[in-house]
């Protein structure tokens, strides 16, 4: 399976590769901030934790960094799962 999905569809421990950040240019400011935190096409990403009660916010590993963000912002990040564990 090679279809892009947003990171909210990933389970804990899944590793994926980012294919687009804010493809539709819905939130340029949000996209800029994600880039500052190391989000970019081709970077690997892993969902590490989801907060109790609804899984929002979530903590992800992006490259060598761990970043906490809310689902709404995470929805801007499109990924392709790398290893279907």
């Amino acid at each position: 399976m090679n279809t892009a999905a947003d990171i909210n569809t990933l389970q804990r421990g899944d590793i994926a590769v980012i294919v687009a950040v804010d493809r539709g240019a819905r939130d340029p400011a949000g996209a800029q901030r994600l880039h500052e935190m190391g989000f970019d096409e081709g970077v690997d990403i892993e969902v590490l934790h989801r907060a109790p009660l609804g899984g929002d916010p979530l903590a992800v590993r992006v490259g060598n960094m761990t970043v906490a963000l809310r689902k709404s912002l995470a929805a801007l990040v499109e990924v392709v799962p790398q290893s279907a564990a």
Binding site: G30, L34, M37, T66, V67, L69, R70
Partner: peptide, 9 residues
């Protein structure tokens, strides 16, 4: 507001 923060080591 949104929430985006680096988690340092």
């Amino acid at each position: 507001p949104t929430f985006l923060m680096e988690m340092p080591k």
